[in-house]
Amino acid sequence: MRRALVALLVVLAGCSALAPGTDRPTVTPAPVPTDSPLPPGVEPDGVADASALANAHAAALGNRSYTLVTNRTVRAANGSLRSALTVRLALSAAPARDYHARVSVEGPGAPLVIGEPPTRAEYWANDEVYLRRQTIDNRTEYSRYDDTDAYVGTWSFWLGTVALDLGPETDLRSTLEGFETRVADRSPEGDRVHIVGTTVRSEGFVGDSTVDNVENATLHAFVAGSGFVSSYHVVYDATVDGERVRVRRSVGFERVGATTVDRPTWYDEAMERG
């Protein structure tokens, strides 16, 4: 879970860094067609079964390749950046699950998952070698491991601990369950549904024990007819260390079934210098 990031710093620091979210547009409710099927777990007035929708989303991803892009940004009331964490994870199809992760952290309150911010890093691995390239103070460092048992930066770590809460299914379910939702818009064919949540039922979507007093929270999710959720976005006000902040988090899935994990341009240099 995301709460485990700081604890894992000590493990990762020796072997080895995320971009601000974006606002979602104000939505004017549109008439919702009633003559085409809705995604699993969704009814005309909103999400009725978050688990059913999350299960369908996970099934759509299955063992296929995809690229996951997440970011979480926290800004003070005056607009100054407290923290930003961005992960872009390209994941090949099972069973190989080669991956290429690009991670960056920025701001004084950013998680220390890859070191003191600001810093950025890339991680590439197949079943034979694990490579890291990290930029710190305009200095680039490389690491190389030829035994996959020698490092903790597996694809499941980046997916289920850093980027998401345990994985796509759990993260989506906990986010949806945090809101009372409605269908804001829907294509006539039923192949794209825009779900909006503005009333908070629980704060499980926050995923950070240091955050208190959540207010003005909004959820936007974009769902295909199959139940695949291409992206979802949460914005809310909260208190962190006694200071009022604005938190924005977004999750998006791209190139499902079409993602390739090729050797990075810095592969040869990492193999030589790592």
Results as ranks from 00 to 15, higher is better:
Asp23Leu: 14
Leu38His: 06
Pro44Val: 07
Val47Pro: 11
Asp45Val: 04
Glu43Tyr: 04
Val32Pro: 07
Ala30Asn: 03
Asp49Gln: 01
Pro39Thr: 08
Gly46Gln: 01
Glu43Thr: 15
Ala48Thr: 05
Thr28Trp: 13
Gly46His: 01
Asp23Phe: 10
Gly46Val: 05
Pro29Leu: 08
Thr22Gly: 07
Pro20Gly: 10
Val27Lys: 03
Pro20Val: 04
Val27Trp: 01
Pro40Thr: 12
Pro31Leu: 13
Pro29Asp: 15
Pro37Leu: 00
Ala30Met: 03
Pro44Ala: 13
Asp45Ile: 03
Ala30Tyr: 07
Pro31Arg: 04
Val32Ser: 09
Ser36Gly: 08
Asp23Ile: 07
Leu18Cys: 01
Val42Pro: 05
Gly46Asp: 04
Val32Cys: 00
Val42Glu: 03
Val42Met: 14
Asp45Trp: 02
Gly21Asn: 05
Gly41Ala: 12
Thr26Met: 04
Thr28Gly: 02
Gly21Tyr: 06
Pro25Lys: 11
Asp45Asn: 14
Pro25Asp: 15
Val27His: 01
Thr26Asn: 05
Ala48Phe: 13
Ala48Gly: 15
Pro37Asn: 04
Arg24Gly: 15
Thr28Val: 15
Pro37Met: 13
Asp35Arg: 01
Ala30Arg: 15
Asp35Pro: 02
Asp45Thr: 14
Ala19Gly: 10
Pro29Thr: 12
Val32Gly: 06
Asp23Ser: 14
Thr34Val: 14
Val42Trp: 02
Ala19His: 09
Pro44Lys: 08
Val27Gln: 09
Thr26Trp: 09
Ala48Val: 13
Asp23Cys: 09
Thr26Ile: 12
Val32Asn: 13
Pro33Arg: 10
Glu43Ser: 10
Leu38Ala: 13
Thr28His: 14
Val47Glu: 00
Val27Ile: 08
Pro37Arg: 07
Asp45Glu: 15
Ala19Trp: 11
Val47Trp: 02
Gly46Phe: 00
Gly46Ile: 03
Arg24Pro: 12
Ala48Met: 09
Asp45His: 13
Pro39Phe: 02
Ala30Leu: 14
Thr34Ser: 06
Pro39His: 04
Pro20Asn: 04
Pro44Gln: 10
Pro20Lys: 07
Val42Phe: 04
Gly21Gln: 05
Asp23Trp: 08
Asp23Asn: 12
Pro44Arg: 13
Asp49Trp: 01
Val47Ser: 04
Ser36Asp: 01
Leu18Ile: 02
Pro31Glu: 13
Gly46Asn: 03
Val42Gly: 00
Ala19Thr: 10
Pro33Met: 09
Thr34Pro: 02
Gly41Trp: 00
Arg24Ala: 15
Thr22Phe: 08
Gly41Val: 10
Pro29Phe: 03
Asp49Val: 02
Pro33Asn: 10
Arg24Met: 08
Gly41His: 06
Pro37Val: 07
Pro29Glu: 12
Leu18Arg: 03
Pro40Phe: 02
Pro29Val: 04
